[in-house]
Simulated assay, not measured.
Amino acid sequence: MSVGDLGRRNADSNADHGRVYTCLKAAAIDYRFRPGEQIMIGELAERLRVSSTPVRETLIRLQTEALLETAPRRGFFAKTLNLKEMSDLVQLRFLILKGAIEQATDVIANGAAIALSWIIPDSAGVGDTRSTARTANRTTLDQPDEAVRYIEEASESVAALCHNDAILRALENMNDRTHYVCMIDLERVGRLMEVQLMLDELCLALQRSDVAGVVAVLKNYRDELTERMPALVKEGISRAYTTPSRMLIASQFDAGLPTLRKPVVANRSVFPRR
């Protein structure tokens, strides 16, 4: 085998690893595997038309990210939605964000947060007189799946102000693990408008260098999610048990998934997502 052939083979292998990871992580985040279902490496490899190596390595990686579970000598299993775990994760996400904001107090006071005015989404129902921070390049939040990504990107951009990579990576993981229930929350009638107003208040507090105000907005969001969590988990479990996941995964892999989270807006974060 020539050096060129070996290079192409390695490139193909790396591409397979990347595509398998993107596909299976998206499936785990969205609970497309049935809760508690054993995940068979050989079956997935056959469906995705790759060797078992990238599938096995992806499952190990997802288990370390707490997106899958393992059992000794039994293999990998899909996560089961758990009320206490989801409530704990929402609380931990708030504490991570609060710590990041408090660590970034000086940065916020020096006006760096003005660059985050993009987090105010467009809102047909809210007049522009509410804020002078609104810009011509805005995003309208009219779909729950887009809105939950937007909130995640906004929270990560705020956390990035503290310039602490470990904090940001921890927050990204919390966002991944709560993504499913947060998206269900946004399906409630009127909830998207509430989120738009929340982001408006968050950005205005940042621009005023009002750290306490920023924390208060995030605390209110945490409290709202915590209050609704029993209903969100119940609905999430019902959906997860009725999703025909495996064929969906195969069809998405065939189409090719460019990213786990399609960027909603550009240049939002100090640290790019992995």
Rank of each mutant, 00 (worst) to 15 (best):
L6T: 11
L6C: 06
R9D: 10
A11N: 10
N14M: 14
N14S: 14
N14Y: 09
A27C: 00
A28H: 01
A28F: 07
A28D: 07
R32M: 13
G36L: 12
I39M: 04
I39S: 05
M40I: 14
M40Y: 03
E43S: 14
E43M: 12
L44A: 06
R47L: 15
V50G: 01
V50Y: 08
T53Y: 05
V55D: 03
T58M: 06
L62R: 04
L62H: 05
Q63S: 06
A66E: 14
R74D: 09
K79D: 12
T80A: 11
T80V: 14
T80Y: 04
L81A: 11
K84T: 14
M86L: 07
D88I: 03
L89E: 09
L89A: 07
I96R: 05
K98H: 07
G99D: 09
T105I: 02
D106A: 07
V107F: 04
N110S: 14
N110C: 06
G111T: 12
G111L: 08
A112E: 15
A112D: 15
A115L: 13
D122L: 04
S123V: 01
T129H: 12
T129V: 08
S131D: 06
S131I: 02
T135A: 05
N137Q: 02
T139G: 00
D142H: 11
Q143L: 13
Q143D: 15
E146W: 13
E146H: 13
E146R: 14
A147T: 05
V148D: 02
S155C: 06
S155V: 04
V158Y: 03
A159S: 11
A160T: 08
L161W: 04
H163N: 13
A170V: 12
E172F: 11
D176M: 07
Y180D: 08
Y180E: 03
D185A: 10
V189N: 12
G190M: 12
R191E: 15
L192D: 05
L199P: 03
D200V: 01
E201P: 00
L202V: 00
L204E: 15
R208C: 07
S209Q: 08
A212Q: 04
A212M: 03
G213L: 04
G213W: 09
G213A: 04
V214L: 00
V217A: 02
N220Q: 13
R222Q: 15
D223N: 05
T226I: 09
T226G: 03
P230V: 03
A231G: 00
K234I: 01
E235G: 01
I237E: 13
I237K: 07
I237H: 09
Y241P: 00
S245R: 07
R246T: 12
M247T: 10
A250I: 06
S251K: 10
S251N: 12
S251Y: 09
R261K: 08
P263T: 07
V264R: 04
R268D: 08
F271R: 04
